[in-house]
């Protein structure tokens, strides 16, 4: 594994919102095929960090290298990175004016320049994988939250990404819909997709993660394999956080 280049390398990355220092000296290397779960209290910078990886947020100091491409002001590089990195959001962010199928074919047709017919075949393939091919002609507003999030995952997969980012994909869902989304994510993880996932679903973390990262106040406080992380946390801050989320 050592000779393959890492999927993501973050070196001494710092970010400010105005004067507010949100990310401090973040260092993280993600190997190809690695599954990482990031947790932490709200405001700890975990979402901001993964949003820096596809440059939805820009960092002011340090380096981010994704798939061998360093993220800079250069728009071409940003587009290159975004082609290879899929992202799922807390609020799904499906395009409400397009059907489910059109949501899934938009990227392949306009970014990958795929012929429409082929893009539709790809879209149907992934909609089948997330188990909602029968909804293809509906609009997002007609689907439940869980279904919308699965469509959002399929939409990202249609771009054939090398890396998938998940920004709290289940926290806007009703409890009974969380499982259907997690099932899809587990399946994806088992297929060897490189995944970074901001989530508080600790069951999911235990099941699929290679590493769990705990962030607080813009810093990576602790990182470990899930077994050690949950059973034997080193840092007091981590212990307190875990006791709060697992305590009830």
């Amino acid at each position: 594994m050592t000779d393959t280049k890492p999927a993501i390398e973050i070196k001494d990355m710092n970010k400010w919102y105005g004067d507010f220092h949100v990310l401090k000296d973040v260092n993280l290397t993600v190997a190809e095929g690695e599954r990482i779960v990031i947790c932490g209290p709200s405001g700890s910078g975990k979402s901001t960090m993964i949003r820096c990886i596809n440059r939805l947020e820009e960092h002011q100091a340090g380096q981010i290298i994704v798939n061998g491409i360093e993220l800079t002001e250069d728009l071409k590089r940003i587009d290159e990175v975004r082609k290879e990195v899929g992202m799922c959001f807390q609020h799904f962010n499906l395009f409400p004016h397009l059907t489910i199928l059109e949501n899934c074919t938009l990227g392949p047709i306009w970014v990958r320049k795929m012929p429409k017919k082929e893009a539709e075949d790809v879209a149907m393939h992934f909609l089948e994988r997330v188990k909602i091919p029968e909804q293809a002609d509906k609009y997002p507003g007609q689907l439940s939250g869980g279904q919308q999030q699965r469509v959002a995952i399929a939409r990202s997969l249609c771009m054939n990404p090398k890396i998938m980012l998940f920004d709290e994909p289940t926290s806007a869902l009703d409890p009974e819909m969380i499982k259907e989304v997690l099932d899809v994510m587990v399946e994806l993880a088992n297929e060897g997709m490189t995944m970074l996932c901001v989530t508080h679903e600790m069951g999911f973390a235990k099941m699929v993660a290679d590493r769990v990262i705990f962030m607080d106040a813009g810093q990576i406080v602790e990182e470990n394999n899930p077994h050690e992380f949950f059973d034997n946390p080193q840092n007091d801050r981590t212990k307190m956080f875990l006791s709060q989320i697992i305590g009830h």
Binding site: D79, N93, R155
Partner: peptide
């Protein structure tokens, strides 16, 4: 909502698209 811009950007669509 800003999520629409973000989703479109994350997909790799340029400004005009």
């Amino acid at each position: 909502p800003s999520g629409q811009y973000e989703a479109a950007s994350a997909m790799g669509l340029g400004y005009w698209k």
